[in-house]
């Protein structure tokens, strides 16, 4: 049965909403508005003069093949991070769900990496794969594989994907595990009695019942890969080699804060805002239909 709390009058509910409205206005609407405004100008870095260019910044971006390439890079990167981190997490969650002894310890250990900040995670992975002193690159060398993510684009992409997914596995694991444990045992047992093996049970019962969790994680992870992986990219590759790991948000930073080209940077933020908005709409409109609540 649904429980409804109703307020008498308007004042209290408005008051309770106010903090959230204020935070959204101050930290989202105001900066987003600024970005849209600035994207119409080519300003000098010190804010001494602004030159109005209309949609010139956007035209410049549309014509820039490297900006278009950055879209592809971002799509590949976000797709890989989402698939790797969710796949790994689901696998681990299914295993942990079946554990009877010591499951608490496993869970705690699996959740740890989430506490590591992306930039720190980046440095950790960089140390392991450092072309000169890295432990893993040294072992790879023994096997006859010459690891060099400083020049090899595929290796660089692989490394940032793994480093970005690592901490994320923990987060996804938590949600998947909670989702798995919320599935009534009786349903699974009934299927087992009917003769369904593990894989069949997983495919026809567990996975569909897990879909709200999966959907939620899909949205959250894509947003993560778009924005929060900045620290990993910055510490490991700085967007290189060439532009192999320059995702959209890294380009916003590079053009704005290294290049002092605030007009282009603002225009890119606006594009990014639209892209993420669009992605979220698509997800809710089309993928959510397949979700069983």
């Amino acid at each position: 049965m649904e429980k409804r709390v109703t307020f008498k009058g308007w004042l209290l509910p408005m008051l309770l909403l106010l903090p959230q409205v204020f935070i959204t206005a101050a930290f989202f609407f105001y900066p987003a508005g600024q970005a849209i405004y600035q994207s119409l100008f080519i300003p000098d870095p010190f804010g001494l003069s602004m030159q109005y260019v209309g949609l010139g910044n956007f035209e410049y971006l549309a014509k820039d093949p490297y900006y278009r390439a950055s879209f592809v890079t971002t799509a590949v990167f976000s797709g890989l991070v989402t698939v790797v981190s969710m796949g790994m997490a689901l696998y681990l969650a299914v295993l942990a769900d079946r554990l009877i002894k010591g499951s608490g310890t496993y869970r705690t250990l699996l959740i740890w990496p989430y506490a590591v900040a992306p930039a720190v995670a980046g440095v950790l992975w960089l140390f392991m794969f450092n072309t000169r002193v890295g432990v893993i690159s040294w072992y790879l060398g023994l096997l006859g594989y010459d690891w060099n993510h400083v020049l090899n684009e595929t290796e660089a992409m692989g490394l940032v994907v793994v480093a970005s997914s690592w901490g994320r596995v923990s987060y996804n694991f938590l949600f998947f595990l909670a989702g798995l444990q919320a599935i009534p045992r009786s349903v699974i047992e009934a299927a087992a009695i009917d003769g369904a093996r593990f894989w069949t049970r997983f495919r026809t019962i567990v996975f569909p019942l897990l879909s709200p969790t999966t959907f939620f994680l899909l949205v959250v992870n894509i947003v993560y890969a778009f924005f929060e992986t900045f620290g990993v990219i910055h510490t490991i590759t700085s967007g290189g080699p060439q532009q192999a790991t320059t995702i959209l948000v890294y380009k916003v930073y590079k053009d704005g804060f290294v290049g002092q080209d605030l007009g282009s940077s603002a225009a890119q933020s606006v594009v990014l805002l639209l892209v993420v908005g669009l992605l979220t709409v698509i997800q809710f409109k089309y993928i959510e239909r397949r979700v069983h609540y």
């Binding site: 290189g240 080699p241 060439q242 532009q243 590079k254 053009d255 290294v258 290049g259 002092q260 080209d261």
Partner: peptide
């Protein structure tokens, strides 16, 4: 924009 130009040259 020389810092950024250097970035391009690096690439």
């Amino acid at each position: 924009s020389f810092d950024q130009i250097r970035g391009i040259i690096d690439e």
